[in-house]
């Protein structure tokens, strides 16, 4: 009997104690972040996760002066585990929130281990609009943002559950989202191994607030989902950029890249520029995303990848909105996935 695994311990291993960080608002407008977080906690508890209570988390965040809720660094993650017993942190970023018809919501959520260095165990995003699946006689239309928010969060939590069960499927890429221009150095092609990769904030030249941080999350997700990459947690990168006082004027310079390579023990650094990140304003129009990427390789200290991508949600759509992508989140995600796959292959 003693050799049999304890069911309670197994359950704990499957559903570790989670610290759910306050939601990071990247939407650029006021949004009901507390409601999003509460819904998220309810869904997690329904799935059997234990969630760290608010008071303990608040006390910890105050004591450690945690201000960046969009990521976690190694020291904070380790302290979180030691002081609260939390095994992982759930970090949520709200990218888009629109209450006017059609309601819109876009979110990115990731599970990061409470260890030093913190490791990304799961990451997914969702972008939805109330009119994206009207169905027969418009029965599929969603008019209230609350209902859309619940649907989006349920989608994310289902993805987390699948990931915990080892059943998460990675969707394929579509040709229309491939970069329009791309350069890939032979240096990269010669090596086939797992790369540690740092994704730096993109230089934001668009009118959308926080677009530089939003696009980073898309790349973190798409690269992390490929077996060839271990992405460094953005919270760790953020802390290093502050520590080295890196000011990226028009992109990263080679001395800054060298410092990041050595300190984070990374093989690759991905950065870029975001030129447009637009969601459709009303029921008409189409989201539009335009960005370019550059990637440095530690071995050669040279640019080994460069690409330029731009797409509309209506690209390749000819009849009855078949294949239309309704949010910039979804467009950017598919574009980033194409870039990530082209880097590998």
């Amino acid at each position: 009997m003693e050799n049999q695994p304890d069911k309670t311990d197994a359950d704990k291993a499957d559903h570790p104690l989670l610290a759910v960080f306050p939601v990071q608002n990247l939407s650029g407008i006021p949004a009901p972040l507390q409601e999003v977080r509460e819904t998220l906690i309810n869904l997690l508890q329904q799935q059997g996760f234990a969630v760290l209570d608010d008071k303990t988390l608040e006390t910890f965040m105050t004591a450690h002066r945690v201000r960046n809720v969009g990521g976690i660094d190694g020291g904070t993650a380790q302290a979180l585990k030691q002081e609260t017993g939390a095994e992982a942190t759930l970090i949520t970023s709200l990218e888009l929130y629109g209450e006017k018809y059609p309601p819109k919501i876009s979110l990115t959520c990731r599970l990061v281990t409470a260890s030093d260095p913190p490791l990304i165990r799961w990451i997914d995003n969702v972008g939805m609009t109330g009119d994206e699946s009207p169905g027969l006689l418009g029965l599929g239309l969603i008019g209230q943002v609350d209902a859309l928010r619940d649907k989006a969060l349920q989608t994310l939590m289902a993805s987390l559950q699948e990931s915990m069960a080892g059943e998460q499927e990675i969707p394929g890429t579509k040709n229309k989202f491939r970069p329009k221009l791309a350069f890939r150095s032979d240096t990269l092609a010669q090596e086939k191994r797992k790369y540690g990769i740092v994704v730096l904030p993109f230089f934001n030249l668009s009118d959308r607030k926080n677009a530089g941080e939003i696009i980073v999350l898309h790349f973190v997700k798409e690269l992390q989902n490929l077996p060839n990459f271990q992405v460094v947690e953005p919270g760790v990168v953020f802390k290093e950029l502050l520590r080295f006082r890196v000011i990226m004027d028009d992109g990263i310079s080679l001395p800054n890249a060298a410092a990041i390579f050595s300190d984070l023990n990374a093989d690759l650094i991905l950065s870029g520029k975001i030129l447009d990140y637009q969601d459709a304003l009303g029921p008409w129009g189409s989201p539009y995303v335009d960005f370019s990427t550059v990637m440095f390789f530690n071995n050669s200290r040279e640019m080994v990848w460069a690409s330029k991508s731009y797409n509309k949600g209506s690209d390749g759509v000819f009849f009855f909105d078949v294949g239309r992508v309704s949010t910039a989140n979804d467009v950017a995600s598919q574009m980033a996935r194409s870039v990530a796959e082209m880097i590998v292959n």
């Binding site: 350069f183 028009d250 992109g251 990263i252 310079s253 080679l254 800054n256 950065s271 690409s307």
Partner: peptide, 26 residues
């Protein structure tokens, strides 16, 4: 925008190495 496209296209020719924009700014 134009510089971004030009740098990418020039690199894509694989005939020249284009110094990264951050390094040029430095």
């Amino acid at each position: 925008r134009v510089r971004d496209v030009f740098m990418n296209m020039l690199l894509a020719t694989a005939s020249l190495y284009v110094i990264p924009p951050g390094e040029v700014a430095r």
